[in-house]
């Protein structure tokens, strides 16, 4: 194949991509470690495709590689949206392997922390380059005003990405959705329990509305 043919071929591939109507949007699920991102991603994937995305754990930094589930079609009130869901590693500015030594031996804890740091860097990279919208998951039983949350929301806003804030774990007694609404009044907050499956109707309505 000559250079020109090859070039024309790749150009037509690019234009195909530009003009194809149904290029699914990539929606990144972001938030601090342990907020319930993977639990949510799994629930969405199970509800609409039948299979899961990744492993959930009470130990922070369970997700250490971004995982993408392609072509998840969500239907709500006659509206249908097809998205790629990207479950990302929880973002933090610090990782201390000693946090994990109660749960595993030192070598494993060190390995987990190294993978966690790579995962956070990867999540930041995806945010800068590869997502079209963000679901920001927070544990509503915890104080939402942390530097990581403020910084990440700022980064997301500066990239003009559409963002929904999910106030997760509303099944917990200490949960406060209002605290999250007050912290980020400029964004839509959706309460839910990813674990119990509470309020998923509103979750899917908002996803179809926002990312459709």
């Amino acid at each position: 194949m000559g250079l020109f043919t090859g070039l024309r071929h790749s150009i037509s591939r690019v234009t195909d991509r530009l003009f194809s109507e149904q290029e699914p949007k990539r929606i990144g699920i972001y938030g601090p470690p342990n907020a319930g991102k993977t639990t949510l991603a799994n629930r969405i994937a199970r509800d609409w495709t039948g299979d899961a995305i990744g492993k959930e754990s009470h130990i922070p930094h369970e997700t250490r590689r971004a995982r993408r589930k392609e072509g998840v079609e969500i239907e709500r009130n006659g509206k249908s949206v097809t998205i790629d869901i990207v479950d990302t590693p929880g973002v933090t500015t610090k990782v201390d392997y000693e946090e994990f030594t109660d749960e595993m031996d030192k070598d494993d804890a060190i390995r987990r922390s190294r993978e966690a740091t790579e995962g956070v860097a990867e999540a930041m990279h995806w945010l800068r380059e590869d997502v079209d919208g963000v679901i920001y998951v927070l544990d509503s039983a915890e104080d939402p005003i942390t530097q990581v949350n403020t910084m990440l929301i700022g980064i997301i806003e500066s990239r003009d990405l559409p963002v929904l804030i999910f106030a997760n774990k509303i099944d917990l007694e200490e949960s406060s959705v209002k605290r999250i609404e007050d912290a980020f009044p400029q964004h839509e907050t959706v309460p839910l329990s990813a674990k119990e499956g509470d309020n998923m109707d509103e979750v899917y309505e908002n996803i179809a509305e926002y990312f459709g």
């Binding site: 740091t117 956070v120 860097a121 930041m124 945010l127 800068r128 980064i155």
Partner: peptide, 15 residues
């Protein structure tokens, strides 16, 4: 915000 994003990324590489 972009610099903050890079700061997090570079910090992770140095832990």
């Amino acid at each position: 915000p972009d610099e903050e994003s890079k700061l997090i990324e570079v910090t992770m590489g140095e832990i």
